[in-house]
Design a protein around this nucleic acid. Structure first.
Lengths: 106, 106
DNA sequence: AAACTTAGTTACATAAAGTAACTTAAAGTA
DNA sequence: TACTTTAAGTTACTTTATGTAACTAAGTTT
């Protein structure tokens, strides 16, 4: 029984990125900082799960939540450097998808 | 209400890769073709879910299942070209994880 | 004051994943 | 021959994650 030679850092990264919605939220924030409701309608995630994901991503240091005291108050989510550093990963997926994924018309 | 400008191919790729275990299974097969039980013990996935994932990946054209009529019979799973083409994606994640993920000792 | 918007939260329903025992087929062992 | 083991799954059941929709709190517009 040869046990997992899988690097724990890699495993942790994978478990982060393979949570549903996580990659899409990051991808969405890659273009620009956004508000809760913008992310929500852009990717079609429920408020509950988006709320969960943003908290996790914040804890993980990938996303920053900022309260902008305009009137009315704006709550803006943006990527930290760590978050932005995932861009190559997302781009690699994007690239791959253009070559290998087909969408069947129905 | 500006609706999803997200590319459907990208979205499909993301929904594939952000299913739990999918990326790890592919990563594992990247090194060499393997048998069911090898994958299972290497990444610590349950038989049930591995079975599900392998079927999905086969349907998706990423993995090939081959019955090798040795004695005893060997069932070998390997990546197709489409599967292998995910290597840059997995490597990008691996790279990222080495720079940005920390494992806390406890 | 009444109605609306933003950023959530709560309660409940459904779907996905984990666990452990079981199955089937072939092979090895007593 | 009967008994056990191994590989590759499957099944039944439990736990966890996600989805849905209604609700809240604070401020805004009418």
């Amino acid at each position: 029984m040869k046990q997992s030679a899988i690097c724990p850092k890699f495993e942790k990264a994978i478990s982060l990125l393979s949570q549903r919605w996580t990659a899409l939220v990051i991808y969405q924030l890659l273009s620009e900082p956004q508000r809760f409701s913008e992310i929500q309608s852009a990717i079609g995630i429920s408020g509950k799960v988006l709320s969960d994901r943003l908290k996790e991503l914040e804890q993980f240091g990938l996303v920053k939540r900022e309260v902008i005291p305009e009137t009315p108050v704006i709550i803006e989510y943006s990527l930290t450097d760590k978050g932005k550093s995932l861009e190559p990963v997302l781009k690699a997926i994007e690239n791959w998808s253009q070559t290998w994924i087909t969408i069947e018309a129905d």
